[in-house]
């Protein structure tokens, strides 16, 4: 990787972390509703859109594990959002995939926090 590209990526990382923090909050709010009786399609579309963006960016910016988990979660969500009425309860694999992604999001956000980075 060229020095210029590394500089660009380093400059973009904090902005990505800001986005990631927003997604983290959103996922935390949505996650309990996936097991409840909320209207699923809008929730699933929101999650799919977020995982898609995360999958595209995270790997490029060096967060490989996060990118891979986001891809896996997106792959689980695609058939559910394409279906007219997703089955209830959601398959355990979907929830497990989202939970694994949320754990990695927590880890990345924690690693990037000022206390850990010394900023």
């Amino acid at each position: 990787m060229s020095a210029v590209l590394k500089t660009t990526i380093d400059r973009l990382k904090p902005r990505f972390i800001v986005n990631l923090t927003e997604w983290q909050a959103s996922f935390r709010a949505l996650r309990p509703e996936l097991s409840g009786d909320a209207d699923l399609p809008p929730l699933l579309h929101e999650l799919r859109f977020a995982t898609h963006r995360m999958a595209g960016l995270a790997g490029t910016l060096g967060f490989r594990a996060l990118g891979r988990l986001a891809q896996q979660a997106e792959a689980q969500l695609v058939p559910l959002t394409d279906a007219t009425a997703p089955a209830r309860p959601l398959p355990p694999a979907v929830l497990a995939s989202l939970d694994a992604l949320m754990r990695e999001m927590d880890r990345v956000v924690a690693d990037a926090s000022p206390a850990r980075t010394g900023r």
């Binding site: 660009t8 990526i9 490029t60 910016l61």
Partner: peptide, 11 residues
């Protein structure tokens, strides 16, 4: 649609 991608692509 992701402006962060714009930054990567530009570089």
């Amino acid at each position: 649609d992701d402006v962060l991608i714009h930054g990567v692509l530009r570089t």
